[in-house]
């Protein structure tokens, strides 16, 4: 089996690769583009969670309203039965 510790030329190559020059960056435009993208994700996320909250609230409101109406009907029926 080859001993990887002896394969120094691989590390040398990687070292040379690491030291190679890289184009200057990122540009200001790219930075602001990334920040804008995250802001839009974040806005979408909060709008989504707000809409989920609103739909749940509406559902609970309907359940509560249905309960009140049902209770009222039951009371009227009981009163009618008692009178009759």
């Amino acid at each position: 089996m080859t001993d990887p510790d002896k394969s120094d030329f691989v590390e040398d190559a990687l070292m040379a690769f690491r030291e190679s020059s890289v184009t200057e960056g990122p540009s200001d435009q790219l930075r602001s583009l990334a920040a804008e993208q995250i802001r839009s994700f974040s806005t979408q996320e909060s709008e989504k969670s707000e809409s989920v909250f609103n739909s749940r609230r509406n559902f609970m409101f309907r359940v509560k309203w249905f309960g009140v109406v049902t209770g009222l009907c039951a009371s009227i029926l009981m009163a009618a039965a008692w009178i009759g």
Partner: peptide, 9 residues
């Protein structure tokens, strides 16, 4: 990784 790269290089 080093073994594979060693063969490649």
């Amino acid at each position: 990784a080093k073994l594979s790269l060693k063969n490649r290089l």
